[in-house]
């Protein structure tokens, strides 16, 4: 519309329309009530001014009116609540089969790592029309991943993973902002999300120099750090067999059950003593300070790939032990 004076953000994701729809409804309702109050004040102030209405008529109040202006706004609010929560639920639940991108935020840049091992700094390349799930963590202070054109925002915390997702619907380049204040160059922590046609995206993907997929990097680390000596792919290991663990419930020594998600794996690497799997001893040393955020993500990707490979294996011939995750 106005090239130099935009008054509304672009709509470039599947969710944007829903958010905008609710936003317009809120504006309409707000405008109605604001104008109502302004109009009433204006009319009363003019009509009952001292010079034409010298004697006030005393009115104590009115219960029906009080109930009306308590219950009607409450009812309207409940509509907003229901609609807003529906949108939030969708935002919080990434669809299955989404393409995963890992993001590390640090003062003051964004680092992205794709499943094929390719890396990006302050730029996120995604194909149009595909669900993209971001698994994010911070190396220092709290940051926030904010793409106004997609209507999504999620804080990026140190010490844990947070996730968000979007499905871009329009090819183009969009602002990526850090929206959680993070120090000196907070306003410089700006990147771009580049939405490309699938073909162009494939070309871009194959153009970059990458040293193996993320999961295969994780597999290498798994060997280097000596994880494999205990976490064997049979039942003889001193640590649990990690095949097919990801995404499944895990019974703990103290009787609790947790879902083995990204944060569980992260915690198990950094604070092994926090949640001991039932039947195992707390003998694993901590890797706190020994693995960087990127390496953690590679390890998580590897453990994930073990689950995916097993699913595939189970579907095909029910035999293979997944030792080559990059074959997926």
């Amino acid at each position: 519309m106005w090239k130099n004076l935009p008054l509304f953000p672009e709509r470039a994701s599947a969710l944007a329309w829903q958010v905008d729809g609710l936003y317009f409804l809120l504006i309409a309702v707000s405008a109605f009530f604001t104008l109502l109050i302004f109009a009433l004040i204006f009319v009363f102030a003019v009509k009952y001014r001292r010079s034409v209405h010298p004697h006030a008529v005393q009115i104590e109040g009115s219960l029906p009116l009080e109930l009306a202006w308590t219950l009607i706004p409450l009812g309207i609010c409940m509509i907003f609540f229901a609609w807003g929560s529906l949108i939030y639920f969708q935002e919080a639940r990434p669809p299955k089969g989404a393409m995963e991108v890992y993001a590390v935020a640090k003062q003051w840049m964004w680092k992205f790592e794709y499943e094929n091992g390719q890396r990006d700094i302050n730029q996120l390349h995604v194909p149009v029309g595909r669900d993209v799930k971001l698994i994010m963590s911070s190396q220092d202070a709290i940051h926030s991943f904010f793409v106004p054109a997609f209507r999504i925002k999620m804080d990026v915390l140190p010490g844990r993973f947070t996730t968000t997702w979007f499905r871009p619907t329009k090819v183009g380049t969009y602002h990526l902002f850090c929206s959680q204040y993070c120090g000196t160059d907070h306003s410089g922590m700006i990147g771009q999300v580049i939405v490309m046609e699938p073909a162009a995206y494939q070309a871009w993907m194959s153009g970059g120099a990458s040293s193996g997929t993320l999961a295969s990097n994780g597999q290498q680390l798994f060997q280097q750090l000596g994880c494999a000596t205990c976490h064997r792919f049979d039942t003889q290991g001193r640590g649990p067999n990690l095949t097919g663990v990801f995404g499944k419930p895990v019974l703990l020594e103290d009787g609790r059950t947790v879902i083995a998600d990204e944060n569980y794996i992260r915690e198990s690497i950094l604070i092994p003593g926090a949640k001991i799997v039932s039947g195992f001893k707390p003998i694993m040393p901590t890797f706190q300070g020994q693995v960087s955020e990127e390496n953690l993500m590679a390890l998580v990707a590897y453990v994930k790939s073990l689950a995916q490979a097993q699913q595939k294996g189970a579907a095909s011939d029910n035999s293979s032990v997944p030792d080559t995750p990059n074959s997926q």
């Binding site: 958010v19 936003y23 609540f81 949108i87 939030y88 106004p148």
Partner: peptide, 18 residues
Amino acid sequence: LTGIFLATLGIDVQVHDT
């Protein structure tokens, strides 16, 4: 009234910290 916008989950995601 704009506080209502912020209480609305789906909208708050867009306008939080802006």
